[in-house]
Design a protein around this nucleic acid. Sequence first.
RNA 1: GGUGAGAUACUCAAGUGGCCAACGAGGGCAGACUGUAAAUCUGCUGAUUUUUAUCUUCGAAGGUUCGAAUCCUUCUCUCACCA
Length: 400
Amino acid sequence: MINEALREIRRGTAEIIDEARLETLLKNYFEKGETYTVKAGFDPTAPDLHLGHTVLLQKLSVFQKYGGRIQFLIGDFTAQIGDPTGKSETRKKLLPAQVQENAQSYKDQVFKILDPEKTTVVFNADWLNALGSAGILELTTTFNVARMLERDDFDKRHKAGIAISISEFLYPLLQGYDSVHLQSDIEIGGTDQKFNLLMGRHLQRVYETGKEQAVLMMPILEGLDGVQKMSKSLGNYIAVADAPNDMYGKILSISDALMWRYYELLSAKSLNEIDELKTGVENGSLHPKKVKEALAVEITARFHSHESAEAAREEFERVHAQSEMPSEMDEFSLTGPIWVAKALVDCGLSPSTSQSRREIKQGSVKIDQNKLSDEQLQLEAGEYVLQVGKRKFARLKVTQ
RNA sequence: GGUGAGAUACUCAAGUGGCCAACGAGGGCAGACUGUAAAUCUGCUGAUUUUUAUCUUCGAAGGUUCGAAUCCUUCUCUCACCA
């Protein structure tokens, strides 16, 4: 029993620090029914969760199965600094109302995976504001610049001559202090969070809390391109809030190699089941597309419903495999006669008439399934189905 | 505080008076092909029904010039070295 739990917890992890402590916590749960706390921090500036975030959530839900109480931390205070990880950009200060709104949006999305009964949502401004300048000052004495600069991205930026703001040094310290305040037993995060996660251990020791959190790091999920991490700013993401059709289509577009990665990190299928699928594909008894379809349906169903996932699959087959028209598309009504390039812009299929003309020249524009070659075409009154490329459609009604 | 270097399109990056709407790479979009929105190959990638044209754009504002991304002045920001 405990071994099975450990195996599920280890699945897909990049690194676990202090496994002994993890085992002790589980042992206490299985033998004495003692629960423990698992902390995970999220930034309130980006309430649009994507599948990359759900890797952590998936893992948190595993902990919930084995006695973990989740401390779902919303970093409303630290968001004022901005985690130095990755690109540095100046953050805008969020108004309390916005934070509340974003937090609510988090809850809506997160509880599709997590059990709300075993989750506590906390805001770090609650205790970090109370820390005061004396408290901050004390916090800064626990660490030094040389060690701070050991952090990989600080080091890179320092050497590359890219600005590092002093406030950014505070970020890891404050995140670590959260663990002190919350008395966390375990903290989980992405591998890019290693430095910050270890800071939690360091500060728990310095502040003599009597425990040092175990740290579990999940790998960063690759985005649709399979190379860069999934992120909204790179545009290679699948949002939790994506419509079923989009979500399904995006998952189906990933490469075969990446599919296995997604299986490991996102699927609720057991490791044994996944191994069977792999063997099937390798010996040719299973078509890779079928396996990918199964993944796409599973993930889509998780955030929507099984019915809408199945509907998305059928829709996809119809539109892409058999190149028929989608059953639903946006409808527009315009007064005519209207130049076709302009109509494409008005229907949101093209950003400018110049772009429309280029697309017509390339033969990517279709009207009622027929390729359009005359870029001067005026649309008279009537109903048309406009199409740009394979997947942008609009139904247009032209009135006199 | 001093000295020097730099800021070019979504990103990186070339361009040092007219051949510049601006090389190249990445990204994005499209076409062909395919089990797929994958891979590969090819084209396009500031705007505008003047399309062998016009207008806007090379950190900001002025200036020199027939003509400025390019020269000058001031400003803003970034970095490096020195203090």
